[in-house]
């Protein structure tokens, strides 16, 4: 995902005269090419995230389109009030781009486990949030967000799923993207965890005409009516996110189901309001917290068993 972001960033800098890239002392080896090509558009403000957002807000206020880059928790939690008051409230074109979403930096410890960023930002009105699942989504989402008015957040992970090569002409904010079609159970996910969902589906060996897989690439804003119309078609919905469900994908889907009194039944896979105190690689931690493909596929099997 980061590679795609890098490429798109350079393309964009060529097109957008007012673009600037600000980093909080992160991205060793990532922005060399960018810095060489556009030295005046690149600035490392140091390990200072509050300052980073404040400076970016000031630049944006004077007409710049700013990209801010750091690791997910530092870019969201450390400077939350600067995001809320300086950037969002003034509707400034500050585009936060984070790496290390979810358990990407699993062995580094809890300070680097980014499992609340989506939820916390989601509770701020008037912000656009995206966590793409594939390289194609990353490319579309990044370009869309930068050209969206106001403040945006793009959460990247190290690896994008290439299990389903997939491209479409359009990418719409707030709508589900359908990756496969079935009629009984819909799996809806956000972010790189998409690859676990595909694997879970493959592993479950359920009749392929019964399972749909969607991503909600943008968590905010959402098109509620569009979502409702899709949700109502299914007897069962699974939501999957590498994030806390409170304020995350699970709670969004749940609130739509309740609001429109849908008959759909919902199962939420998330970090489940837990902080992991152990470390491990991303796959290991996904398993530990129950959002890995084996756990999901065994739940798929259970659903179909109870159906028969």
């Amino acid at each position: 995902m980061r590679e795609i972001f890098k490429e798109e960033l350079i393309k964009l800098a060529r097109k957008k005269k007012n673009l600037m890239l600000l980093t909080g002392d992160l991205g060793y080896g990532v922005f060399n090419k960018f810095e060489k090509k556009y030295p005046k558009k690149y600035l490392n403000v140091g390990v200072a995230e509050q300052n980073l957002i404040g400076i970016s807000s000031g630049l944006a206020k004077e007409g710049k389109c700013v990209i801010c880059y750091s690791i997910a928790n530092f870019l969201t939690l450390r400077c939350l009030e600067q995001i809320r008051n300086d950037s969002v409230y003034h509707n400034l074109n500050v585009n936060l781009v984070s790496t290390g979403g979810g358990f990407t930096y699993g062995v580094l410890g809890m300070s680097h486990h980014a499992t609340e960023d989506l939820s916390i930002l989601n509770s701020i009105p008037n912000i656009t949030i995206s966590a793409p699942s594939t390289n194609w989504e990353t490319k579309m989402s990044f370009n869309k967000l930068v050209n969206t008015k106001g403040t945006t957040y793009l959460r990247l992970e190290k690896n994008a799923s290439d299990l389903i090569p997939f491209e479409r002409k359009t990418y719409k904010i707030g709508k589900l993207i359908k990756y496969r079609k079935g009629d009984f159970l819909a799996i809806i996910c956000i972010g790189g965890i998409f690859s676990e969902c595909i694997r879970a589906y493959n592993n479950s060996k359920v009749n392929s005409s019964r399972i749909s897989i969607y991503t909600l690439s943008t968590l905010k804003p959402i098109d509620e009516i569009h979502l409702k119309n899709i949700l109502r078609k299914y007897k069962f919905i699974f939501t999957v996110e590498e994030n806390n469900y409170i304020g995350g994908l699970g709670s969004i889907i749940s609130s739509i189901i309740t609001k429109y009194s849908l008959k759909t039944r919902l199962k939420i896979f998330s970090t489940n309001d837990q902080t992991l105190k152990i470390v491990g690689d991303q796959n290991y931690l996904r398993k530990k917290i129950g959002i890995d493909y084996l756990t999901i596929s065994s739940e798929i099997k259970k659903v179909f068993k109870s159906e028969n």
């Binding site: 062995v107 580094l108 410890g109 809890m110 300070s111 105190k277 152990i278 470390v279 491990g280 290991y284």
Partner: peptide, 11 residues
Amino acid sequence: KNGSNLSGHIS
């Protein structure tokens, strides 16, 4: 290592 309490950042 997987499952360890000795994280890269001190815990």
